[in-house]
Write a protein that binds this DNA or RNA. Structure first.
Lengths: 236, 236
DNA sequence: TAAGACGTTAAACGCATGTTTAAGTTAAGT
DNA sequence: ACTTAACTTAAACATGCGTTTAACGTCTTA
């Protein structure tokens, strides 16, 4: 009837779903699941609110889809594998992984790292509803990281010490992301500039490698042999 | 008119404020500021909802009061000072501090540690509204902790390396609290039992001391002089 | 062209939240 | 006894949320 409503069908139908998905990644990673609202997601996507229900059912399904979508085309695993391929020395690979993760996690406006930031945000505020999706999205990265740490230690990835060290490293990196706001108050000189990010990354690498390499040296059978991954036979 | 409403004035007037405060500590530290509701706080306290407004003004002022109240009568600083007094060796003090913090932070039903848990929960989800209170509540612990780390390193508490190492340790401890739910899925054997808590604490101490002691040894001028605070000299 | 599926829209619904109100009860002061 | 202030109560209010509705436009198909 009234022609004042302008409809634009110029975009393909599937575009709306994608726009919502990308907007959801941004909003979810910025505010977390609870604080994020479907209204803001719709606003960022430039679509109607009801389309969340139409395309995804409800907010929770949209979030689940975001987690799957994010972990699919993600660079998380790529960073890890790339770092491992580029560096024969697992210590250097570790250093590169730490720097890459820290850069992505602290990058504000970048699309890169949104997925990791999203995970980190939700890890602290878990819910039984989506913890399964979070786990399956995190699992590959966690396992690959354990392999790298295990290589340095000369221990299998399932070893308790390997896991403890892995979490020690993850915890250090995550801390600078979690505590960033209060950190800038307790330590005003720390502005998280690119140069400072690199300094932090190198510190975390040095800090961690001090223990890792010392422990490797303690294991006589592996100290000079099984550091590398590509050697034919693995353990003890 | 109708006498079916039973009023109990048995409790002193100030008791209600205290009950609300204690209930608020519990609820806030369990769910965080946003998820916590004044209805649940009132229910836990056994008081009326409107009393939050009467005694504190609104939810935010109640939270601010909780942070101040928690940091006042808190054992956070006591643990630090006690650990430092009991141990002439700052390395042992560090180990004790780590274990104490981890035990408090993971204790579920204890009143002890609620304050620290509250801080940790809010650090990840900051807001300009209460970041000032959080900072002043955290500052003493942060500074004292830096002193201990600085003693081990043989560096002043303001040194960049001291700060980086302090955050490396804090990050490791905080990680096991933040990531606890997803951790139990990625590492099912980790149930956070008291024995495992102690194992983790010792690992974090060993992991951190490997770097701290190696760095102390690198500083020639202080490696044999300024390590200790009380005893005149200390070993490399 | 007619019909139906698909996509979109504005508006409203139901609910939980923080907040406020107006009345009520108790204790102390005079 | 009367007044006043402090404290408490049940109920309502205003808001923002996720969700739903009913109508409408657009495209495909027969």
């Amino acid at each position: 009837m009234k022609a004042k409503i302008v409809h634009r069908m110029a975009t393909a139908p599937e575009d709306t779903r994608d726009k919502l998905l990308k907007a959801a990644i941004q909003v979810f990673s910025e505010h977390g699941y609870e604080r994020a609202t479907v209204r803001e997601i719709s606003r960022v996507a430039g679509t109607n609110i009801a389309l969340v229900k139409y395309h995804f059912g409800d907010k929770l399904e949209l979030f689940r889809e975001v987690v799957r979508y994010a972990s699919d085309a993600d660079a998380k695993l790529a960073v890890l594998t790339q770092a491992r391929k580029e560096n024969a020395d697992p210590c250097e690979a570790l250093r590169q992984i730490i720097r890459g993760a820290l850069e992505r996690l602290t990058a504000r406006r970048e699309q890169t790292g949104l997925q990791l930031r999203l995970m980190l945000k939700e890890i602290a505020n878990p819910s039984n509803a989506w913890i399964v999706e979070i786990e399956s999205a995190l699992r590959p990265t966690y396992d690959q990281f354990r392999v790298v740490v295990g290589q340095i230690l000369g221990l299998p990835m399932g070893d308790t010490k390997t896991r403890l060290c892995t979490h020690s490293i993850i915890g250090q990196v995550a801390h600078y992301v979690h505590a960033r706001p209060i950190l800038s108050r307790l330590w005003p000189e720390m502005q998280m500039s690119p140069a400072q990010i690199e300094m932090i990354a190198n510190h975390i690498a040095d800090f961690s490698l001090a223990y890792l390499q010392a422990e490797r040296a303690k294991i006589p059978a592996r100290s000079a042999k099984k550091v590398q991954k590509k050697s034919p036979r693995k353990r003890t």
